[in-house]
Design a protein around this nucleic acid. Structure first.
Lengths: 203, 203, 203, 203
DNA sequence: GATGAATGAGCCTTCATTCAT
DNA sequence: TATGAATGAAGGCTCATTCAT
């Protein structure tokens, strides 16, 4: 039954955390709904936070890794070829991240909607910050390469990229079939890519 | 003194709610930091939630109203002229909303970052839904009018508009001078307007 | 009623701690027996340990101070006069300490019999260590002054002085009238003074 | 393995009880550190208290017996010869007790320092009471025999004898080589014997 | 003998809220 | 208006112990 107890706890915990957030969810309620006792729970985890981590950590780390690897791969491309590869890297990276996130929707929803009060509360924000940095750097390099591009107020970069990520993750938050989801992600990417190009004056 | 007591409570409450969220903030901590007693507090409000409401409600409603009025005004324009006025309505609407939100930053931040567990937790989401509806309707009408526009998956609309609003509100969340803020808002608007046009195949 | 609540809590707490020790006593039991609620308790103290401290600290510190002052006073006497004054200092010191402890019996009993698990668990032991040090030093000085005294194994000093203190505090632990108590303390002192003198070969 | 399991449990249990006391020690911690399971433990003992008893009882009883036998032997000596044999009985008794206790130090330390909350918490106190009784009786008999001895307040007897036992057991609590220990015990005995004689005015 | 998941009472503590003053 | 002591439910967590395997 061990397997079962843990599964049941996870199942209920995800539901409760999603409904009430980490702080709002009650451990006692979780175990009651899971049909076990507090003691049983504490045989598996040392604390409520550890339970949340168990649900979130592996996937959060996978995505963060995947994101970082993608960026590092791009950074190791000679700068003279950046403009040629940017689009592919960005699209592939987003698609890969998205694909994984889609397969682990619930974990991602926990990060997105229920992580206040945990160490994951800034996770998305941190991803965004990284994306802002790389974007900023990209256009700096473009200029070094002789392209004529505008220079944006940092806040505007922040606004656009925050929005892009928010949009991307909406597809995780809501339940839609994978094919439709992937199509939307692809189109969202094109939407932003085109808009960036125009905004920056890169034809 | 009454005025003063209430002011102090508001001031501290805003800070506490922003720091810890509605659920995480402790009423007793708030009144203690405000230098008053629980008894005094409950002379003004019936509950913690009512305090939160007091801080948020007037401004939330104002914006909601402003948003709805703007949309209704647009809806009352003859459909044949929609394409001509859309951009202005949208830009002016956004600017007006933003201007007000900027003047009442803290209330807005409460909605954006601290409203989990209150009746405002879906406020932004609801705004977005409305914007999605009107946007959707707009392109329907365009097609009725003979324009050739693509038809988007509803989720894609949702993603883009969520992102746009998120981006817009980032400027409220972070502290930047008003002029810079307004410029960013204007540019964000242009960014999305252009991108929409391109996405829909309108020109 | 505030005064009363606190008094009642103190009263019951002393009894419970004495009966079951700090660890064995239950806060819930204390407040229940005191006829109040846990919430009421936590209006006065931040924790069970803080309650224990409140009952113990002031008196523990007073005695510790009194003890240290007495020793320092002796140390500031010219060494050549130590042998002359030792007995008085020691007797007066013990009497003073004892008198105070007697007036705050319950606090002392808490230290003696119920402090396991609190920061006071080594209090008596520390007093004894100090007394051992000064005693040791005293006989060193005696030898410097030309007195012929034996040299004791450190453990024997430890044994005797531990015993002396234990004996002294027995009078606090048990309920006897003050006059009888003081007489016993005086006689205990003489008992040890004589025995020390004989043991050290002084006289 | 059984033997081994039990041995390991005992070993760890002693350490844990000594470190944290009976109440403060956690059974689960003990079995975990011993590398076994709770189930295995409950195959040997019915409860945490029974474990403590197993560690303490045999030695506690041995000593208690030895003490009682020694006293009874003395009591069966004709009263007219008490004064002649007292010293030997007392010294031999103490030495024998001590020798045994020294060989089973840890069990004794459990009684002395970790027995709060168990049925052994008054063990030492009871020994002392018995010693007080016999001492008291001894001096009564001395007076019957025509010796001139003072009469002590019962509390003073209690104080002195408590102290003596405390001192004696210090040598068990601390780790010192047996030879040194035995010497200290012998000297402690002389210390108290002499002091008693003087206190009672018996020469 | 041994496992270890499960029990459930109990622990200390915090909370929003009430109410006599 | 304001006080602040008091309420009592609820929180997360630990414990000695049981029992099906």
């Amino acid at each position: 039954m061990a397997e079962n107890t843990l599964q049941k706890i996870h199942e209920i915990a995800v539901a409760e955390f999603l409904e009430k957030g980490f702080r709002g969810a009650s451990l006692r309620e979780i175990v009651k709904k899971a049909g076990v006792t507090t003691g049983a729970f504490y045989g598996y985890y040392k604390s409520k936070e550890e339970l949340f981590d168990a649900l979130v950590q592996p996937h959060a780390e996978y995505i963060r890794n995947c994101f970082d690897k993608c960026i590092n791969a791009f950074l190791s491309v000679p700068k003279s070829e950046w403009s040629k590869h940017m689009s592919d890297f960005s699209e592939n990276g987003m698609a890969e991240m998205f694909e994984y996130a889609f397969e682990h929707k619930d974990s991602f929803r926990l990060i997105l909607n229920a992580s206040e009060g945990t160490k994951w509360e800034n996770y998305i924000h941190d991803l965004v910050e990284t994306e802002i940095d790389i974007t900023h750097k990209y256009y700096d390099v473009m200029r070094e390469q002789g392209f004529k591009t505008h220079s944006l107020p940092p806040m505007l970069e922040h606004m656009i990229i925050s929005g892009e990520f928010t949009g991307l993750f909406e597809v995780i938050i809501h339940d839609i079939p994978k094919e439709e989801a992937m199509l939307c992600v692809k189109e969202l990417h094109d939407f932003y890519e085109g808009a960036w190009a125009k905004l920056m004056g890169l034809e």
